[in-house]
């Protein structure tokens, strides 16, 4: 376990392993996401209450899951950055923050468009929507702070502190539908409970979620590799790798 943790700290080891896994992540991610979306759009039955507008769920829920999961992963990486000063942890935060921003925007946008035929309004300042908007601002803040500080180590520490302060928003997002009276419906399914949806609806949803997580894995590996190239370009191993034509 510790040996793996130690290896994970090595940019050279990570670069090699990411290059090996990336084609599999991309292929399986695209396959599952396309299967989930096509099934959800064309073959899943209509919802008895919301009609066909509910089909937005097959992208809204995966995007919202990713938006929150990426922030939680960033928070773990922030702890590793502050405690163990591991280079790769900071590389991860910097590489995935823009991805988290895009998924949070997608979850807000698809939610707003879904809200119009369902609630009769694009937006309400209720707890779930407002806490997701705060998450969007947190991602923006992390990206802006990282770019505002020139010194790499100072930027890493400042960003890690901001990420950790913002992590308090995650349980608020998750439990907002239970703690407050909101327009937003309660969780569609939980890992610990039987889903409240029909099987024909939740199977494509699970496929889309898994597919998007795998595509996130591909994106994270690719963006981390780019960041490693920038930071480690003066090292011997990057020079040898690039001159040998290794991607």
């Amino acid at each position: 376990m510790w040996q793996f943790f130690h290896k994970l700290g090595s940019p050279k080891w990570f670069y090699g392993i990411a290059t090996r896994f990336m084609p599999w992540l991309l292929a399986s991610g695209l396959l599952l996401l396309v299967a989930g979306i096509v099934w959800g759009l064309a073959f899943a039955p209509k919802d008895y209450l919301q009609g066909n507008s509910y089909r937005i769920i097959f992208i809204h829920v995966p995007a919202a899951f990713l938006a929150q999961s990426i922030y939680i992963m960033m928070a773990f990486s922030a702890v590793v950055t502050l405690v163990w000063r591991m280079k790769l942890a900071d590389v991860f935060v910097k590489a995935v923050a823009p991805v988290g921003l895009v998924f949070t925007f997608l979850s807000l946008f698809t939610g707003a468009v879904w809200g119009k035929p369902t609630w009769g309004t694009w937006w309400v300042w209720d707890a779930r929507l407002t806490s997701m908007l705060i998450l969007l601002f947190l991602y923006g803040g992390v990206i802006a702070l990282d770019r505002a500080i020139n010194d790499e180590k100072s930027a890493a520490r400042a960003v890690a502190v901001l990420v950790l302060v913002g992590v308090v928003n995650i349980p608020i997002i998750k439990y907002s539908v239970d703690w407050w009276n909101t327009l937003h419906q309660p969780a569609t399914f939980k890992l610990t409970e039987k889903p409240s949806m029909a099987v024909e609806m939740w199977v494509p949803l699970v496929l889309a979620i898994l597919g998007l997580y795998l595509l996130f894995g591909w994106l994270a590996c690719l963006r981390m590799k780019t960041e490693i190239l920038i930071r480690e370009q003066r090292t011997r191993w990057v020079r040898d790798l690039v001159l040998a034509g290794g991607k």
Partner: peptide, 14 residues
């Protein structure tokens, strides 16, 4: 999609 098409397709497009 029984009138819900524009909402659904805009979301998927974006």
């Amino acid at each position: 999609m029984e009138g819900h098409g524009p909402y659904v397709w805009v979301c998927y497009g974006v």
